[in-house]
Design a protein around this nucleic acid. Structure first.
Lengths: 286, 286
DNA sequence: TTACGCAATTTCACATAGTGAAACTCATAT
DNA sequence: ATATGAGTTTCACTATGTGAAATTGCGTAA
């Protein structure tokens, strides 16, 4: 930590940076990288390398290294053609995850409503990484009820209403990643052909909801629909499960109406496709 | 880089991590920190320290250091009461900045419309850090026109329609920070008392737009209204500026109607308060 | 209450990994 | 062409991040 100037190739004397107080337990390079992200945002979402180096008082080379790392992780992107660094797509992905945190809380009243009207077991699910996970539920009141057990990972997205409702709105690469575990057969109704699933998802998109007719559990029929935000990104889904003994066409139609009403309202809460597409959905329904 | 085990307090032999290929020009600690953020998101927005350490295969201590830095910068927060790390508020702020990037593009047609109907100079502005900045404009067609010069930082948020329109919807601490430069007097109409400005902003909120009656430039009257997204966060504002010779009550009402129609439509595009509050705004207007 | 076990936090010595001056390359203006 | 300035890469040095272990703190059981 001497102040002596040691002339040498590639490295002149560095001013001794004494880390004090709050800086004690924070990692310099990480702190600087995050500072860069903040600075890009302050500059209106786009900035040149030199601008950033000046505003942050960082060495331009250090800036460049840090930005390279941020780019690798998608937190920052280079504007094609222009010499600009901009906030990356990962930021938007993360903000979706932020909103998902209070999805269960916001969904609670809707789950109760669907449960009250249909009388069936109702689940809330969401995507977590490559997995479909159930986050909350309301038990059916009937003596004969569907009990798919506790909350947690759904192993069969291709064979459940939740899975199909959400898969339908994903970009293809993400859909394939979630299906990477394969499409195992559970019942004679299970869809095990990829092309067949693609067609089924097309119908889900058109109708706005998905139906599982004993494709996972024999004797259990589910209706599910996705919750989507402003960008159309899937943030979750709601489903109702009925034993097939109760699943008349009429009862399924009731579940479908309640479920889609709930997901439409929730989607609207998250800024998603709400009223405007509701009529279209209703017009096409069944 | 020897494989020799050097037993010593506080540090056992570290496996030699050979950085290769793409990892060559990325900074380890930053990369790991960003990996942690991604991982929290994958885990549904919340995770414990041990979970994170396991999933990322990072030393729990390293994790802790990295998380401390992320917390310091607001990218991650600790869930109060619980032993959980969650995505922080900064992420949402950043996503707003992301959307702002294409604000000028999306606003362009509206600026043209307001310009066409009112015939006056029209500006688009946004918040960048602590500053109010004009991003785009359309010149008036009249021989006598308002020419506030080029785009760039607005030095007097308290004395302009843009400034007041946006300040009105900010949380108090942010509003105070933007006003930190003081409230300089420009004309005899300039609001220089903080309490008076607070009252003025209250009216802006109620009416949905702001008017600058020669508060900044003598002989210039502006009408502005904020563009807000789903969370109600201000993402920009549009204003029209007329020379006072043309600013009859009728003309101001026309500008007000055009401006609020434009910001209402744009707000809706960003998932903000659109149709639902429009009627209320119109009912109260002037 | 006290004791237990596990999770979170802090410490600390070492050597790797980050830093920044300078060299180099590329793009744009003159 | 040639100059200017921005962006990128290199490289030597040591400040900085790392991780095993010690410490502290929390939650739960007895």
């Amino acid at each position: 930590m001497s102040a002596t100037v040691l002339p040498g190739p590639g490295n002149e004397a560095r001013p001794p940076v004494v880390r004090s107080g709050a800086e004690r337990n924070s990692i310099q390079s990480v702190d600087r990288a995050l500072l860069l992200v903040d600075t890009i945002a302050e500059l209106g979402g786009e900035a040149t390398l030199t601008e950033l180096a000046n505003r942050t008082s960082l060495n331009i080379s250090t800036c460049h290294h840090l930005l390279a790392t941020l780019i690798k992780r998608g937190f920052v992107m280079k504007v094609p053609g222009k010499r600009l660094y901009a906030l990356g797509g990962r930021i938007l992905h993360l903000s979706h995850a932020c909103l998902q945190v209070d999805l269960p809380r916001r969904a609670q009243p809707y789950l109760e409503a669907v449960n009250r009207v249909t009388g069936e077991t109702v689940h809330l699910a969401a995507l977590q990484g490559d997995a479909v996970v159930t986050l909350a539920m309301r038990e059916a009141r009937h003596a004969v009820r569907v009990d798919t057990g506790k909350l947690g990972k759904i192993e069969a997205p291709h064979a459940t209403a939740h899975g199909k409702a959400m898969l339908a709105w994903l970009p293809e690469d993400e859909m394939r990643r979630i299906l990477a575990h394969g499409m195992k057969r559970f019942t004679e109704n299970t869809i095990t052909e990829f092309s067949e699933l693609v067609e089924a998802l097309r119908i889900v998109r058109r109708k706005g909801y998905a139906v599982d007719r004993e494709e996972f559990l024999p004797g259990v029929i589910c209706v599910g629909s996705a919750i989507r935000d402003q960008a159309g990104t899937v943030i979750g889904s709601i489903s109702a499960s009925a034993p097939s003994m109760r699943a008349t066409d009429e009862h399924i139609a009731l579940m479908r109406d309640e479920i889609t009403a709930a997901t439409r309202a929730l989607s609207a809460e998250f800024g998603g496709p709400g009223a405007q597409s509701a009529d279209r959905q209703r017009a096409i329904a069944v």
